[in-house]
Amino acid sequence: MPEPSGSLADRLLIGVVSLLLLLPVLAVVVSALATDWYSGLVPSGLTLQWFARVLAEPAFQAALARSLFVAAGSVVLQVLVTVPAILVAHCYLPWLDRWMERLMVLPYALPQVVLVVGLLGLYAGGPLPLTGTPWILLLGYLPLAFPLLYLPMKNNLRALRVQELLDAGHLLGAGDLVIARRVILPCVAPGLAVGLSMVFALSFAEFVFANLLVGGNFQTLAVYLFGQRTKIGQVTAVIVVIYFAAMWLSTLAALSMLRRRPI
């Protein structure tokens, strides 16, 4: 964009885009607070009764608890499995790292239904019969969430000279684990925070896997919301607002982690 007229045009463009992005959110929030919004540009009145009603609903509470469990469990599983895998591949196994980079988009390139069928086949019998349990969800989200951690963590790792840090650490008498814990992990904390907050958001809100893999056995918030879609509009709006709030809080948590570790 040319520089002289750019400033005003840029601001206008950003304004329009922001408006387009914010408008639906705003509409949902207003709808969640509306007494009635069937005619006219504005609702006829505002009320918190829908919030009270949804929050008091035992089915909603259970679904919210399940989604929080899945999201938190997913974060824990990623920290235990994916984070060490990314670190090990980056530091010792460059060939594996290259394959990770190539294969990472696969879960997004395939239709989700295909993935579901694959996961159902994988966990139907064999050593890990998990179909119908929430655990299949956690394992299913593992590859789905992988790029969310891989990309930001690799950004941080590439800026480090990991091999030199390992060499320096070894000469100072530290083993690899000590160096990983005291140097490398703190250095990738910003990427880790961003990644984990996205993992949380993904696992909290994901629908297709949740519906097809466990569905009625373990109704998550997304599946519950789907069940409510034909009922009162305000109720679905309230659930969506609660979604937004959860995402917002997890993003804030990640940002505050970033600020705590200025590197």
Binding site: R161, D167, A168, L172, P186, C187
Partner: peptide
């Protein structure tokens, strides 16, 4: 009992 100084310092950036 050796110590080394590296070309690109290899300091621990978080410390």
């Amino acid at each position: 009992g050796v110590a080394m100084v590296f070309q690109h310092y290899a300091l621990f950036p978080n410390m």
